[in-house]
Design a protein around this nucleic acid. Structure first.
Lengths: 220, 220
DNA sequence: TTGACAGGTGAACAAATTTTCAGAAACATC
DNA sequence: GATGTTTCTGAAAATTTGTTCACCTGTCAA
């Protein structure tokens, strides 16, 4: 694999950043402006090079249309081990977690040092003109849901939604967010900790919930 | 929120699917072709409507350039339940999963019917100016890792990295991606299925891996 | 020195794409 | 049945965008 020149890498990065932030690709002239080229052809040449080197695929004739080839893996100086990208149909297509508040529109806080925490973060919010409740992630502390296989240190994705009987909700109790299962029984609403050692049902009059826990994430 | 008509919803869905699959937006003509309109203006009108209704943002004059507003959650007409957003410090800041290949730059394939699946999706490499290989997600099929608490239907985030002894890797065996634990023993490399019912160690000469499984996601 | 090559200028061209205009058909609503 | 709205047609205009051509400028190695 032929290596990219500095300019090529910069352009590729810019394109990535652009599409991540705005959700659509930059035009050749956008790139030209960004790098202060006097001619569109400077960009054109670079794009050709990027395509030739296999890191970018242009769609002939189509404006703002590219595909980015999967990144080449860093060389692994191991002996027998070889990398191979998965075929597209193996890839699970996710939806999106919109993070509330401060990081809603932010770019990923990718700190190499932090030991490659997995997972995601969502640029999007581009065009978020709604004050609708967003999904967000919470780190689980404690063992109140241990019997539901949600353990200390896990991360749950909290989504907005209509809480139904049996749902696990992020509820505000005494100003603190806790994970509980919502129980409706005899017209009354209860919260239940999924831990045998905890008291059974906790009746609630007014329930303040932050959302529904729908997904658990666990580090291996 | 004004509701979308059937055609509008279909067009919106198509656009989402297109961008998720190809990583760039369809042109008006693409949409026209898809829905067999005789005129581009049919599409144009629908796009106007979608924008007026706030679910889509067009970039004037730019081809194949849109932003999609985040979905609004269904209104909760429940009685005692109140929503409250979490404070920022409760929010876990994630890093980013870059999806390989086709969906690299895609937007979420959000199908309302599919019942508010949780989770994320990644516009890509946002700002990642690193040439590192991308992470991606795989849906787990089968029970080969059941003893490691990775079950059928779970989703694992596969990350690039130097595989070490004990890591769970996504390895290519007979052209199929499988999840196995990597064992180095006596200078040899083995793969081990974490399921008591499966044979112990599988010796490998040449190992083709797609990455390291570092995170499991499970739907509740 | 020469030649190859990455990087760039400038202008023009062709194609793709958005956008506008005027009007018609379908369809529900009252 | 009248009325208004949504949906669509057809063609044309305006603009954006990708593409091409001729030529210039350094750098680096043979």
């Amino acid at each position: 694999m032929e290596a990219l020149t500095k300019k090529q890498q910069a352009i590729l990065d810019y394109m990535r950043q652009h599409v991540a932030e705005l959700s659509y690709w930059p035009s050749i002239r956008d790139i030209q402006a960004k790098f202060r080229f006097a001619s569109t052809n400077a960009v054109f040449g670079h794009l050709q090079a990027l395509e030739r080197k296999g890191v970018l695929q242009r769609i002939p004739g189509a404006a703002r249309a590219y595909k980015i080839a999967p990144e080449v893996s860093a060389d692994l100086s191991e002996t027998v081990i070889r990398y191979e990208s998965p075929s597209d149909d193996q890839i699970v297509n996710f939806e999106e977690v919109k993070f509330a508040g401060a990081i809603a529109a932010g770019l990923p806080d990718y700190t190499e040092s932090s030991g490659v925490l997995s997972s995601m973060q969502v640029p999007i919010a581009a065009g978020s003109r709604r004050r609708s409740p967003e999904s967000f992630a919470l780190r689980v502390r404690g063992d109140s849901m241990i019997d539901a296989d949600i353990n200390d240190g896990d991360t749950v994705i909290i989504e907005p939604g209509q809480p139904k009987h049996g749902d696990i909700v992020a509820a505000l109790i005494d100003g603190e967010t806790t994970l509980k299962r919502l129980i409706k029984q005899g017209g009354k609403v209860f919260l239940k900790a999924e831990n045998k050692n905890y008291p059974d049902l906790m009746p609630v009059n007014e329930l303040v919930i932050q959302g529904l826990a729908k997904t658990v994430m666990r580090r291996i």
